[in-house]
């Protein structure tokens, strides 16, 4: 069946751009992701297998070699790998009790970047995004308007907004309006 077509990938935010001089919005590149669930006893083995130390403190993350482990809940992490690795298989090698579900296509991400990226996101997000409360590396599941997102601050002026595919256009639109307002 080698003569068969190879299906091509189409991201829901492909080609979109928006925002303002103080907060630019760009779609993130495709990445592989798993929703990782595990008891405390498995954390060490999973950290080893995934080559990134799973954070155990609320609202924190860890990164190594383009791979990010985001604390979502006390037994839940969102693992994002920018090189597209097979994270389900890697987690499986830990031998430890866990659940890894591939969510590479469930989520997409918007990168919001600029001196007022926080203000733009606050158009729809009720969390305090000041650097003191939401420092670089902080992450949290929360809301933007009516849509659930995972916010991840990758730099003082940059957030990665992980969102389910079908909510992406809505979240992009809302933050883009916030970005325009933040520029006034």
């Amino acid at each position: 069946m080698s003569d068969l077509m190879q299906a091509t990938r189409r991201g829901v935010l492909d080609g979109m751009h928006g925002g303002s001089a103080v907060a630019r919005l760009t779609p993130a590149a495709p990445a592989s992701r798993i929703s990782l669930r595990a008891p405390a006893a498995s954390v060490e083995a999973l950290s080893g297998a995934l080559a990134v130390a799973l954070p155990v403190k609320p609202k924190t993350s860890a990164s190594a070699n383009g791979r990010h482990a985001l604390w979502i809940g006390p037994d839940e992490w969102l693992i994002i790998d920018e090189s597209g690795a097979d994270l389900v298989a890697e987690a499986g090698k830990s031998g430890a009790l866990h659940s890894a579900a591939d969510v590479s296509h469930r989520n997409t991400a918007v990168i919001v970047s600029g001196p007022k990226a926080d203000v733009a996101i606050n158009a729809g997000c009720p969390q305090d995004l000041s650097l003191a409360i939401f420092p670089v590396g902080a992450c949290s599941r929360t809301l933007v308007g009516k849509a659930e997102v995972v916010l991840y601050r990758t730099a003082a002026d940059t957030f990665r907004v992980e969102v389910w595919r079908s909510f992406a256009a809505y979240v992009f639109g809302l933050i883009a309006e916030g970005a325009e307002d933040a520029a006034l």
Binding site: D75, L97, S99, A101, D102, V103, S104, H105, R106, S166
Partner: peptide, 12 residues
């Protein structure tokens, strides 16, 4: 119970 739930509605 040793079981976890993940929404995959939009994965597929």
């Amino acid at each position: 119970l040793k079981v976890w739930l993940t929404s995959t509605t939009e994965q597929w």
